[in-house]
Design a protein around this nucleic acid. Structure first.
Lengths: 345, 345
DNA sequence: ATCCTCCATGTAATCGATTCCACGAGGAGG
DNA sequence: CCTCCTCGTGGAATCGATTACATGGAGGAT
């Protein structure tokens, strides 16, 4: 592969001049410029990004460490991150942690070894050693979606509290009184926060959230299934299950179907994270939608601000409730096909 | 950030010795080794991958250019690729082409500039200039899923022909005679091949595939919807629609629902590419499953073979039919709720 | 005791860029 | 006509690693 030396030889100038042309430095004669450009064309020369990075100490690359690529929420996030980064002249390298702390650490370390300019993380656990070191060492870093309390790192996320209040209002309006939640891992902020917000919202209606109605999931389909089965086995099962992410909601749906029960008649269902597939399930699932694309873009902007020496903002965007049919129909008494359960509340 | 020089100084040896310890070269005294290791530990030293790559002319990085990250098929592929690559000591950089040739070209170019060791591509179009150049220049390269005919590049893919024959047999057995297909872009191999295989399979039953039953999609949800609406508007609409990818199948499902029709009673539906969500739709969708994970792993192995100088194999794995309920029930006359259409065949 | 071999180590070149510094030519001003 | 500036250019250092080659000392064979 042709190097800058070959171009210099071909154009009959020094490597310094070639470099100047390539970085359009002002003091280059038109004559030299055209000869260099011709040589570049003739040789099909492309600058070696590795060499350039070594010299300039910047890679124009961002690292993105997400918790689970198979989760549509994160792939959408990844897409918007790449898009915005590209617009700002950066590339993105994605690391998939698969919700496993040691894999997260592997990726953080690998990315740092490659001397990425900045790191975008949605931390899987309470903070792996590698990540904490990086944060303390001053590596430009921004948390997206989830974060680690106590670190001086900007956070870009959605605030779901208002939307959760709306959801509870919606559920209460439909007559539901026994509400359960499938939470995420306690080590993640999104895992614990959503449960707290749900409890607070219920409290406003004087509805308690007993421990048996708090399921412990791990943001994966299987855990949603398992927890829901537990709920259904309860002497007094809940009327509604609210899953703290979309995959667990699908697991819940599956568990309900497996018993030959129906949503929403036998058990209503709602989810955090709206994804396009929820429109196509039966019934369409009521969900809380995050402004995922905007989140990704804001995170990139914050990170690039930090990299380029501007003060990076923390950003919190509102999530919003999207009502579909999985909790019952608003107009009619809705859950009319199972009047027994409903009437007792 | 500490460099190898700092480590050398701290340990009281030369940089050469440090490098030898790090690459566990045999001739280093135990004494020197322990001192170096201690210094590495004390300084939190991590080798600079950029500098190493420049010197060794290898990055131990693979590029993966896929057509659409939002398509679950490709995210699953990406996951298995990263997994296998990691096992073999390589990292992966993903480029999302979003089914746009110019974006594909951008990513190929960027990846090549970074001097990745090899390229895994699922080409969006007939081959962008950058990719063709790379292939001809001898960059280690492997095509996954889709490929470009006429290039001497190994291809790792699934052969769906047998599965499509099974599907047609299944449909024929259920009494369906008017079968339509939503194909992908003609520029992609998977776009045209699946249509051809479908036509061949139909021919075995003496069933023609008229042009009006061949829809032109682009592997996106919206095109599935559009084409299906066209089918439904036909004077004699098909009894079955076979979508050449999962997103178009969802679009089709959507179009059917929007008219208040039912699957499979009013229109049966099948898809190429099985994804986990198909189990959760109503009805669960009959699909042709590719061995996606195995495909990704085989592709990585072929690419690494090529990189490390071994002859890379082309691999073709069989796809298989997964029967669910979207085409009617096997046991009963199945589509009994619309006996009219069925009886006329 | 002498010589050869082998091992541990250091010196320095190298990868492909960027960039500081020096230098010569040419124009402007005195 | 001399001086000073500006401009275009090239030489060479540099980034952080790897590695060929040189060197010196220890130990074994004769």
């Amino acid at each position: 592969m042709a190097s800058i030396k070959d171009v210099a030889a071909e154009a009959g100038v020094s490597v310094a001049t070639v470099s100047r042309v390539l970085n359009d430095h002002p003091s280059v004669s038109d004559d030299a410029r055209t000869r260099v450009l011709a040589a570049v064309e003739a040789l099909g020369y492309r600058p070696n990004a590795v060499a350039r990075s070594l010299r300039t100490d910047q890679t124009r690359t961002l690292g993105l460490v997400i918790s689970d690529v198979l989760n549509p929420y994160f792939t959408e996030l990844a897409r918007s991150v790449e898009e915005e980064a590209r617009a700002l002249g950066y590339s993105v390298i994605i690391g998939n942690a698969d919700e496993r702390p040691e894999l997260q650490d592997h990726h953080v370390r690998t990315l740092l070894d490659r001397r990425i300019d900045g790191l975008l993380v949605s931390p899987t656990d309470g903070g792996s050693p590698g990540m904490l070191d990086a944060a303390r060492a001053g590596t430009p870093m921004v948390f997206v979606d989830r974060w680690i309390p106590g670190l001086d790192v900007p956070v870009v996320r959605a605030d779901g509290r208002a939307a959760i209040r709306d959801l509870v209002a919606h559920l209460h309006g439909l007559g539901h009184r026994r509400l359960a939640i499938i939470g995420g891992p306690a080590a993640t902020t999104t895992g614990s926060e959503r449960v707290a917000a749900f409890r607070d919202a219920l409290a406003e209606y004087g509805i308690p959230l007993p421990d048996v109605y708090i399921g412990q999931g791990d943001f994966q389909v299987e855990s949603g299934r398992r927890v829901t089965e537990g709920f259904l086995d309860l002497p007094e099962p809940p009327e509604v299950v609210f899953a703290a992410d979309n995959l667990m909601a699908l697991g819940a749906l599956d568990a309900v179907r497996a018993r030959g029960l129906r949503v929403p008649e036998d058990l209503a269902l709602a989810a955090f994270d709206d994804i396009r597939w929820f429109v196509h399930t039966d019934p369409p699932i009521t969900a809380i939608a995050q402004p995922t694309g905007e989140l990704g873009r804001a995170a990139v902007r914050a990170l690039v601000d930090q990299i380029e020496g501007r003060p990076p903002p923390s950003v919190t965007l509102p999530a919003r409730l999207v009502v579909r049919r999985s909790c019952g129909e608003p107009g009619e008494p809705g859950t009319s096909s199972s009047p027994v359960r409903r009437s007792q509340s």
